[in-house]
Amino acid sequence: MNIQDPANPPLKDKDYASNQEVRWCAGCGDYAIIKAVQKTLAAVGAKKENTVFVSGIGCSSRFPYYIDSYGFHGIHGRAPAIASGTLLANPDLDVWVITGDGDGLSIGGNHLLHILRRNFNCQILLFNNGTYALTKGQYSPTSLKGQRSPSSPMGVIDPPLEPAQFAIGAGARFVARAIDTQQKQLVDILTQAYHHQGAAFVEIFQNCVVFNDGMTESFAAKSTASDAQVMLEEGKPLTFGKNGERALKCDPGKLNLKVYDVGGEEDDGHCEILHDPSNRTLAFLLAQLELPDQPLATGIIYNDPSPSYEVETYKQIEQAQENSQRRRMNDVLKQGFTWTI
């Protein structure tokens, strides 16, 4: 609960905007994302001075300049490492890592893997636009096979990396998928990510109008969204379609999810699954759902908190201090074999 202090009225969305001119292309999905982040910051009552946005390199990584808080625009791929150090120095900070599919999954794949595994307490937003936008449109690790770009004129031949699967595989304890245009869901996810203790990974599909326009069309357009997405809600069945007429349920005898027509011939009512974000096996199955035969899972795929790295670090320090008489370097230097002349 936020206790309101009349001298310091709660900040509004706009109060979190910096005085810098935003330089993204008109129509870029980044605008919707920054709006959602500002809404979230206002909703959770984030303190500007305690909030740090750390980014790497790419269109998305310009983000910190546009938020009126502390910000560190790092080098390509390394934002997770900078954020880890910042949290080690001051675990009380609210750290947000802003990265993209190239920054986070290609050059910075190693760091993303390890910040998730270690579970540093931060929010990691990966803007997935399927292209290297800032360097003008080369294909990225999430580009689909066949995608043509200046560096793949005959089409991409390497299979894409799927961010949510990567994150779960890396040991992340909070994995969500969102879409720039679905504001309500995005704010809701970001709010939960903010409150999550540990690394919260949010993949956000972001439309790059210049180099990969229409990437989200097939699953995010008004006409397609309800059929192409299963929007996850805790404790609810995995239904989708305009009127919830289809559902994902167990495929008997197989470790699989299968699309059923609700109440249809095959649906005998025994195989229903209610979304349980703490179920890692289910999370994997959900992350693996692939268009067009299956719906894309959006929402919070996995959420099962465990102790975060910086908390454990300071626990060890406390423990060491409890078991030791040493307090200063003088105590250390004089310990062990010494002799006096």
């Binding site: 390394r78 490492a81 880890s84 150090g85 910042t86 949290l87 760091h111």
Partner: peptide, 19 residues
Amino acid sequence: AEDEIAAMCSAIGCSYGGA
């Protein structure tokens, strides 16, 4: 750290954070 680059970057992060 996970590699030399991360070691340097997290050291920078430490200093940024006030250590």
